[in-house]
Design a protein around this nucleic acid. Structure first.
Lengths: 245, 245
DNA sequence: ACCTGAACACCGTTCAAGT
DNA sequence: ACCTGAACACCGTTCAAGT
């Protein structure tokens, strides 16, 4: 099973070991001590390669982003909208794969080489749609925010599968006893659901629809929101700023 | 300074103590042991009120959301766009106030009473713009995702003020040595910057512009993205679905 | 440069016991 | 119901020392 402890380790070995632990035992198990043990090292040996646990976490973030296909996202032969959808879906899938990915992504600025390249590809793509540089940068930021936000809501929902909350107000009454939130209750099915799964297939199918391979309920909500954002962003190209309220 | 240990505690006392520690010593200091000590209790006494630390965290999330002015957000006399902006800015400000707010929000489903009421207000608001229930729910989800996503990017950036990353690839070269990411570098100023600060003033000024009191660079990027999202969402009311690519 | 061993100052949670 | 005390199985990080 195990490849056995290596004789000499490197930064990438440590990051790989950390990901293996993340996938098999969850985010809470990703510890300096645990990673070191997986490599047959003493905990303090890790500090030769990373100045802190946080630095290791940030290296993991960039490793995670390295799996994105930026070449495909930069192919001008494909519709930009389609490319954004594929890129966003891929990023969301990566974030959904591991528990606690939001903690990872929040451990420091997204200024690693792959994070910068991702941002660069997004800005360039929007500029290809005749957007000025500044707005293209804002659009890239907004798309990134949308993906991270949906990932955060996904993560929050998954975190509660095991744990039931306290569930009581100070008056002792149970939360949302009946129809006090009818709209939310009636639409919960549209927004909740599993991410990942078939998401990896997006962009591989090829020809027809943007969100053809979506089957999760949350996946279509994700695509819908992204489409509305892109609608608004791309519409800003035609009518610059002048139309006021 | 300290009000002294209480004679009898309650769930709200514990949550309050946890927030005080969060604001003064940061998220890492919010521990069962620390909260208990602040109340003059033994760590294990906390488990009489919360089944786990995570349950305490979730109670903190709902407490955080309780400060949102949902009444103002439901006032039909005010333009819906303006109400969404105020609500979103307020939520973002709350998330920006404390370090590690994203970890808090990710600790479990947003199904507390105040979270549900927030969602309810958002859905109702979009329905007031003649959107069908399903799309209104998706729009609410998208707005929430946008706020959380921007908050995540904010948090990530702040997390790096202290800590410089490893900063080296396996080849030993420094990250982003020169102009390998020109678009990102040229626009970094548009997207980075402090959140919070004057944000709390939004909605208190009153009359004229939506983002009048914004001064941070990130604040205007936040408002821009939200406006583009609302553009796309509200445009979907006029032309339902029929228009194809 | 790379790694160990011992130590410091912490964690969340369980359990048995007291009132 | 509410709280204590002891214990279990952990943390991240520093420091002095070895090679």
């Amino acid at each position: 099973m195990k490849p056995g402890p290596r004789r000499s380790v490197s930064q990438v070995d440590i990051v790989d070991a950390a990901f293996e632990i993340l996938e098999q035992k969850g985010f809470a198990a990703v510890s300096v001590r645990g990673v070191a043990a997986a490599l047959g090292l003493t905990p303090t040996a890790i500090y030769t390669y990373f100045p802190s646990k946080n630095a290791l976490l940030r290296a993991m973030v960039d490793e995670l982003l390295s799996s994105l296909d930026l070449a495909a996202a930069s192919d001008p032969a494909v519709d930009w909208r389609q490319r954004v959808h594929a890129l966003a879906a891929a990023l969301r899938a990566r974030l959904a794969e591991h528990t606690g990915a939001m903690v990872l992504v929040t451990s420091g600025p997204l200024d690693g080489p792959h994070a910068l390249s991702l941002n660069e590809a997004l800005i360039a793509g929007f500029m290809g749609e005749r957007m000025p540089l500044d707005d293209a940068a804002r659009a890239a930021h907004a798309v990134l925010a949308h993906v991270l936000g949906v990932a955060a809501l996904d993560a929050a929902e998954r975190a509660g599968d095991v744990e039931a909350s306290a569930g009581r107000t100070s008056s002792g009454a149970l939360w949302s006893d009946a129809a006090s939130h009818p709209l939310t209750e009636a639409t919960a099915h549209l927004v909740a659901g599993s991410a990942g799964g078939a998401v990896g297939v997006v962009g591989a199918g090829g020809a027809d629809a943007v969100s053809a391979s979506d089957d999760g309920r949350a996946d279509s909500a994700f695509a819908w929101g992204l489409d509305r954002l892109l609608d608004g962003v791309l519409a800003s190209v035609a009518e610059p700023v002048t139309a006021g309220a």
